[in-house]
Amino acid sequence: MIGMSTRHILLGLLATGPSHGYDLKRRHDERFPQARPLAYGQVYTTLQRLVRDGLAEVDGTDSDGGPERTTYRSTEDGARELAEWAGQIAPPAPFVTNEIFAKVVVSILSGGDAEAYLRAQRAAHMARMRELTAVKTARGTDLATVLSADYALNHLDADLRWMTTTAARLTTLTAEVDAG
């Protein structure tokens, strides 16, 4: 989930009520199963920044028999900020940072085997797609998991299609890159 703001996600999770850092991490990982899991340190620093900007505040502390934990809650500013962010459309890929394309071009420039690279990349993509499909089709999978796997699958599929057409046009590309 590139470009997604951890701030806003945490604000969103806080919208259901006060919560402490570990709980937020656990709920995030549950809710967004195919996303990169949040590091606890990242949760902690983000919460600090939210408090600094007046979007969240400390609710209190509890220990529950274990170590002491600080609970946070969203402020009114935080709720406003969240509503604004949720309503904004995501910019449709304004700058494509395509690592695969960069590697193909670099590989042509340096006299490497771009075709072999694309093949290996394709195999890796396919392996990941099979994994995601297996997760998605396992019996009893919840819809959130299916949908987030679908999101990833569609993006990987788009990459794959691009790689297939690129592989078919490598000769022309090589000529063009070498000429330039």
Partner: peptide
């Protein structure tokens, strides 16, 4: 379709 092929064990 790669998304359909991903249902398989092997390609």
């Amino acid at each position: 379709d790669a998304q359909v092929a991903a249902y398989a064990d092997r390609e």
